[in-house]
Design a protein around this nucleic acid. Sequence first.
RNA 1: GGCCCCGUGGUGUAGCGGUCUAACAUGCCACCCUGUCACGGUGGAGAUCGGGGGUUCAAAUCCCCCCGGGGUCGCCA
Length: 621
Amino acid sequence: MASDEAAKLKAFVGSIIILWLTKREILFRTHSSTDLTVRSVGSMVTLAGWVHRRRDHGGLIFIDLRDRDGLVQVVFDPRVSAEGHGAAATLRNEYVIQVWGQIGRRPAGTENPRLHTGEIELIGQGCRILNASRTPPFYINEDVEVEEALRLKYRYLDLRRQRMKENVILRHQTVKCLRDFLNARGFLEIETPILIKSTPEGARDFLVPSRLHGGKFYALPQSPQQMKQLLMVAGLERYYQMARCFRDEDLRADRQPEFTQLDLEMSFVGQEDVLGLMEDMFICLAETVKPSMKLLKPIPRLTYDEAVARYGTDKPDVRFGMELRDLTGIVAGSNFGVFRNAIRGGGKVRGICASGCGSYTRGQLDDLIELTKGYGAKGLVALALMAGPVGLAVDPASSAAAKFIGLEEVRAMAALFGAREGDLLLIVADQATVVDRALDQLRREMGRRLGLIDPSVLAVVFVVDFPLFEWNEEEKRWDAKHHPFTAPKEEHIHLLDSAPGSVKSWAYDVVCNGYEISSGSIRIHQRELQEKIFGLLGYSRERVQTLFGHLLEALEYGAPPHGGIAPGIDRMVMILAGEENIREVIPFPKNQSGYDLLFDAPSDVSVEQLDELHIVAKKEG
RNA sequence: GGCCCCGUGGUGUAGCGGUCUAACAUGCCACCCUGUCACGGUGGAGAUCGGGGGUUCAAAUCCCCCCGGGGUCGCCA
């Protein structure tokens, strides 16, 4: 009988209540703050948490009690409990306390609509300090900017703050959503080792000395790339893991030496299968964890060439336009030395049009010029468009170059941009890669300045058809653009020897709001082709055998066609959280110099430890 | 390694050659206050202005070096 069970349950709950009324140290709390609603009014509860804020009215004392889930107001009235009131008077911020009493509806007119529990309060009968707290080094209960070094040193306090707590929770929800999504599609979550073999291509490896094999080292994985391919050879068909990756390179706002990728790999798939899966996954993710943000769907595709031509980069922020235009043809016969020389040197002249910026002051223009120079360009030609006697003309005040630019050229440029009077053309002339990099950064800056960026938009775009190789000028050789296991497009394989630079690959990126958030490819699954690629990359036969012999051998045992991708968790969560720094979504990050300010790592170790590892440390300096 | 920015009570800022015996907000401490919710009121303590050197009659303020932090270029297959 249902009513019987209800009665039993009631009796059981009653006995629990008696237990905690007498032995509160056994049962710390009966509810969390979010358990409490108007329906709780009248019930006796015990709560535990931190003193978020204390408002002492002399007579009444209000305590905002914070636990992980939220805040609830506790009111201590000496007429209810003199003892409780007395104890409450000694409380300070961040004390950990246990409070008990009855849940009451707040008096009419004193409800707080900004609080989830704003209609009720705990009428405090007693209060026990579980642990006092020193005055924190910065505010826990207010969202004010604090020097990041201090936040990192006291990260355990920083994480108590609402913003960080929300980010940690968002990260959990993101990871859970991704796991749920992939589990439902037949993926197996498989762990791979952290101690692996160093293959000194790409990023620098973190090395781990071996005690058992003196003088030898493990490396930490830059990604589980080869292992996931071997899992495909193993016939597991669909794999993923939340993989920690390590790269010993300099840090940036979006780069930490260790980071997390949703590493995944699939057998019997082509590019469209992987991208289709990603499209579903990103839509599912956005709708699940950030329904307030707008993800543009279907997710558009850009070829690498198209992305570079229109935005100057393979990771464009497509939340706004202001696309690049190539002016090389228009100014091919220019008298302007800067343009002429660039073109003669095999370079390009490209630009963007900043609408309505024709009235920029000298100072503002100089600012943009400096910015451009900072990205390697020799300069920036800024042409403000104004009404001339016959149609558009350049405001001579905007640029010393104005007098060298013919009216015909100006009008052709304006037409290409669709520019009007009052607009500002920003033009860079140099080698194509320099021009593109400078204009990409300039475009981002102008997008920010002009408020063209809608922060609630998730502009995800797939970039496809990456080149297989990239010329390394320093080493005078071809490097893999993605990684050496990437499959070339079948129709380009015949170009491998004759024109390696024009070989396109089955590599693809996922870009969101100007950040590369995933990178993947269809892999080579045949030994011959893989060996050929290694050869083109300049690896000797011996080196290939030493570094990749195991993989090549595996490809000979019925390796299925396979491919995958690895979305970067930190960057994705950063974007979803509306943060501009990856550290805001990592509980315990390193600072810009790779130092852990909380643990003081890296640190010295004892001579004994080094001895065991067969290592002699050189003294710095 | 290069370039740019920052460093002032616990926190966040102002001050940018003399009026600084360093200001403001908040926090902290004490007292007052029975419906607040960033409670309010009164009073108080708290800073050798990141460190060192220099210029000057005079430096938080100008210059140099160092340290710490952030951003970025290189680097990140």
